[in-house]
Amino acid sequence: MAKNKRDGTFYINPYLGGVLLGLVLFSTYYITGRGLGASGAVKSSVVSAVHTVAPVHAEANKYYSKFLSDDASPMSNWLVFEVMGVIVGGFLSGTLYGRLKFKVEHSPKITGKTRLIAALTGGILFGVGSQFARGCTSGAALSGMAVLSASGIITMMAIFGSAYLFSWIFKKLWI
């Protein structure tokens, strides 16, 4: 395995990956008192983008205005920086293991175009769902599980349960 580390097919042992991720999550709790997140960064960029383009509209909207107050901003900034870090970290790992390449990954049974449409739709749904659940797989489910929060564990079960069900409906997209 070691000799082919840079051909893009090598992944670290999943349990090692899990422990690494767990230590990062633990450090995040130890240092900041909060968990990791991803969708929160998307939310704060959407909020600030809308606020820049149409300030009156953003302040009138009850959802945007929740996140426009002064005391809400530092935390949402935190997530934006964290996500920038995620991209840097992913890039580092991709460089290390030789996976940097522009490509559309899809099942041989579908075309690249189908895959992109499905990905976009999936992203939209995930965006909507993460707002309902007040966090995504990282922010609500993973971080929530580490502190045994009810919302985290229920959201996790809802995500994986329904994903399991729906993935068999869309089986053709994958295998």
């Binding site: 991803a38 990905a119 739709t121 749904l125 995930f126 007040r134 349960g161 329904s162």
Partner: peptide, 15 residues
Amino acid sequence: GGIIMGFGFALGGFC
């Protein structure tokens, strides 16, 4: 929210 995300997961393959 979890169910909608699960649907998105099955279509998009990412979180």
